[in-house]
Simulated scan of single mutants.
Amino acid sequence: MLEGGVKMRWLALLVLAALGVVSLAWLINIERGGGVGVALAGEKLALVRLEDVSVWYALQENGLDVLRDLADFFHSEGIPFHISLIPVFKDPSRGIELGIGDLHDPRVRAFNDTLKYMVERGGVVGLHGYTHQCGNEVSAAGFEFARFGEYSRPSYAAVRVKAALELVHKVGIPVTYWETPHYTASAAQYQEFARYFSIIYEPDPDDKRAKKIAVVKGLGGRKAVYFIPAPLGMITRDSDVPRLLSRVDRRRPELASFFYHPFMEYQHSLKTGDCAVFHLDRPNGYLRTLVRELKARGYRFLRVDELVREIEQGGHQGLYYSSWLEEEVLLQ
């Protein structure tokens, strides 16, 4: 029989061991995306964003099939993904202006149904401007804010954000973040964006090369606004995949965040009137390859709002920096 002091020491060791097992299970659960709490320090995270998604896809012969096919891919991999939506597509030279609120048009209704399908498959929608253009520019090619004259005014930004929000609310599309077209707006316009969004899915406006998340306090009157960058940039060609993976292998970033235009995933041909036909049986496969290679390297894909929640709970402390908005900007 053990003496009293020795017995107590053994009991204490057993309790500590049990606590260790519980703690390890708790951390593993968080690492796999379950439970609530602070995520593991130094955990490797990944974000993927589908860029410039608009009614343009419904104007192509099978553009909506492209969006649905990619949504099915992400769902099959168990990966959340982001959809930067341009609510109104404009091509002034061709007399086209068609938005998600034009429900009399069957192409719009089909596009909206596709968006909702993507959300059901794990998609997270954000607003990417209102038209992502100005003047005679085509949507997605042009700037929208901070160009000249009225386009640089905060009142102009406020009107566009409200108009975009009205459209997504009208058709029942939930939105989680804002992304400024071409990451370009004035300081006063970012104030307006922040009044409606605490997550802005782009780099710190004061440092567009920033690879860490900027937590800006006071912007738009908010306690905190999160600027989340995509430091791996954009995939545009086959050679981008090994280049980005080589960068990941050399630098081992905690955040592997990138964006991609969905139409790039498939070879295509053009019909009369520049209508594209995408060959889903002939994929380029850039996106699929990069996603699977990042998973193989231990990266966990997550939503931007999930990432923000983990930061607010004290996780990923080496992944972000905080700053206060300067008083002169607040007074603009």
Rank of each mutant, 00 (worst) to 15 (best):
A18S: 12
F89G: 01
M264N: 11
T180I: 03
T131D: 02
L11C: 01
P203S: 12
L59K: 09
D274A: 10
L2Y: 15
A224V: 03
D113M: 02
V88S: 02
F301M: 11
N112T: 12
R160A: 00
D249T: 14
L70N: 12
A39V: 14
A141L: 05
E265W: 01
T184G: 04
H279T: 07
P92Q: 06
L2P: 14
D281N: 10
L11F: 04
V159Q: 02
V171D: 09
G135F: 08
E310P: 04
S76T: 10
K44V: 07
E310F: 05
Q60P: 08
V225P: 03
F259T: 00
V38H: 13
P283L: 11
G135T: 02
L115N: 03
L290A: 12
L167A: 01
L85P: 11
K162L: 04
E326D: 15
G218M: 14
E327M: 10
L70S: 08
I311T: 07
A71L: 08
K223F: 11
D238Y: 14
G220N: 06
E3W: 10
V215I: 14
T114I: 05
G221A: 13
S269H: 02
L98D: 00
W56S: 06
V241P: 05
Y57L: 05
R209H: 10
K162C: 02
I79M: 08
F258V: 13
T131A: 03
V161S: 01
K211C: 04
K170M: 02
Y117N: 06
G149R: 04
M264K: 09
A224R: 12
W324L: 03
K217D: 14
P203C: 11
A41R: 10
S93E: 14
F263C: 12
A41N: 07
E166Y: 00
K223G: 08
E43K: 04
A146T: 03
K44C: 06
E150K: 07
V277W: 05
G35K: 08
L165Y: 01
F197H: 05
E265F: 08
Y196R: 10
L50D: 05
L307K: 14
F89E: 00
W26G: 06
A214I: 12
K44S: 07
Y260K: 14
A58D: 06
Y201M: 10
I86V: 13
A46N: 12
Y177C: 01
S322Y: 04
Q191V: 02
L50C: 07
K295D: 04
L59F: 10
T180L: 00
V215N: 03
G172V: 14
E326C: 09
A46F: 00
R160E: 02
P242W: 02
V138N: 03
V36Y: 13
V241L: 15
I235K: 05
V329F: 15
I235M: 13
